[in-house]
Design a protein around this nucleic acid. Structure first.
Length: 426
RNA sequence: GCGGGCGUCGCCAAGUGGUUAAGGCAGCGGCUUGUGGUGCCGCCAUCCGGGGGUUCAAGUCCCCUCGCUCGCCCCA
């Protein structure tokens, strides 16, 4: 036990869990594909500068959670803490805007943040995200959100809450910020220490403080929704109306702000009550200013990201056994000649599209049958000395126990019948 | 980064200072090379996350450390 262990905040995803990952990824891939989104794969590390400018130097993510290092050429690099900045960088660098006016790009992969690990929060974690670049139309917001809710639904998640807010444009926020500071300053000494600190640095973040006393003070605080310009307000109303048209239930939450600097207008967060403190399963929003911030031409954009580890926790609770892959044939053999023939048969079965498992133990038939049973195979092929000599094999269907002797050379003529039978059983 | 809980075999889990660390599941081997899921027998922690210390004696007490976990923070 004193050997080398995985690094803190990282973990192995073992075969029993991988089936859940594949299920979620396949489900999402399918829905994203139907929505006309294309996958994009960007590097796991980028120049540190990208995140400083993209995410915002004042954010916690950038100021104290990044895995940054200098490589041997003394370049300042950082393991990506989130996916959007890299996608936007690639969008600009590869002139993807020239491919058509709207780009729907999605990604999955590991992200890195130096945080204290807990359930649903690790230092290496995985996100699946969508970025829709090139449209500021409220329909783009709602389309992106609908894709997210479709994925969560297809995965089988229920009881999720969907919080929606608009944080307006830059001017709206500047105005609101002042109003909020003016309101909170008289209460400063009653705020929790974190919030006191944020009062000057990032007052909007005080809104989602979990501190009870702070929340009490916030009860009568000004609402961002009252500080939106006419056009921002109209835009937000349109988003809500379109969501209602699609029967996507949401609740307005004027205290919802997001941690990353680049958001504007629509912001949203989807949470599960079954995840404890790390409840957010999907979150995102509009970030119209980011592309220019990173050196591109003005491009409206909206995106979201899902935390895969959190989805896995929820999916595992559903205990969906449909994800388990079953074995069609378990092949049992004993004796040198039979063992050689068994290997050939396994190969033939696999090439014909069956899932076949070969018992390599060489142990007594009784043991091999036990393993066949545990593998949950539909049928067992049995080869011993006598079959080897005759060039035959016994086929036993494990559920019914019926058994027939077949000629090895004529196995292929049985395939179609087996396929029908296996399909009927599943 | 802060506070609380926890750490005995692959998994679950007894053990509360005193000889060789229960048990269950899983695994492995056997019950002559012939039939499983449902039998029987046997094997499976010189060691209790790691390191120090206290003691005649520690898995059991103390300190440090690593890790997990819950909350804060942050966020997906």
């Amino acid at each position: 036990m004193a050997g080398i262990q995985v690094s803190r905040g990282t973990r192995d995803i073992l075969p029993t869990e991988v089936s859940y990952w594949q299920f979620i990824e396949a489900t999402a891939r399918d829905i994203l594909d139907r929505a006309g989104a294309s996958e994009i794969r960007t590097p796991i590390f980028e120049q540190t500068e990208l995140f400083l400018r993209g995410i915002g130097e004042a954010t916690d993510v950038v100021s104290k959670e990044m895995y940054s290092f200098n490589d041997r050429g003394d370049r300042g690099l950082t393991l990506r803490p989130e996916g959007t900045a890299g996608v936007v960088r690639s969008f600009i660098e590869n002139s993807l805007y020239a491919q058509g006016d709207v780009q729907r790009l999605w990604y999955v992969g590991p992200m890195f943040r130096y945080e204290r690990p807990q359930s649903g929060r690790q230092r290496q974690f995985h996100q699946l995200g969508l970025e829709v670049l090139g449209s500021g139309d409220p329909r783009a917001d709602v389309e992106a959100i609908a894709i997210a809710t479709d994925i969560l639904k297809a995965i089988g998640l229920k009881d999720l809450t969907f919080d929606l807010n608009s944080i307006g444009d830059k001017d709206d926020r500047t105005q609101f910020r002042e109003a909020l500071i003016a309101y909170l300053t008289p209460y400063k000494k009653d705020l929790d220490p974190d919030s006191q600190d944020r009062l000057t640095r990032n007052p909007l973040r005080i809104l989602d403080s979990k501190n009870k006393d702070t929340q009490k003070i916030l009860h009568d605080a000004p609402s961002i929704l009252d500080h939106l310009s006419e056009s921002s307000k109209a835009r937000f109303n349109r988003v809500q109306q379109l969501l209602a048209d699609l029967s996507i239930p949401f609740q307005l939450n004027s205290k919802l702000v997001r941690g990353l600097d680049y958001y504007s207008h629509t912001v949203f967060e989807i949470q599960s009550p079954d995840l404890g403190a790390q409840a957010t399963v999907c979150a995102g929003g509009r970030y119209d200013g980011l592309v220019t911030e990173l050196g591109g031409s003005e491009t409206a954009a909206i995106g979201w990201a899902m935390g895969l580890e959190r989805l896995i926790i929820l999916v595992q609770k559903l205990a969906n056994s449909a994800m388990a892959s079953r074995v069609d044939f378990y092949v049992v053999s004993r004796g040198a000649a039979a063992e050689g023939q068994a290997l050939r048969i396994v190969q033939q079965l696999r090439q014909a599209g069956f899932k076949a498992e070969l018992d390599l133990s060489g142990s007594a038939f009784g043991k091999q049958f036990k393993r066949a049973d545990r593998s949950a195979a539909a049928a067992c092929l049995i080869l011993g000395d006598s079959e080897a000599e005759k060039g035959t094999a016994q086929l036993k269907w494990l559920a019914s126990g019926e058994q027939v002797e077949l000629v090895q050379a004529e196995l292929a003529s049985e395939f179609q019948g087996w396929r029908d039978r296996l399909e009927g059983a599943s």
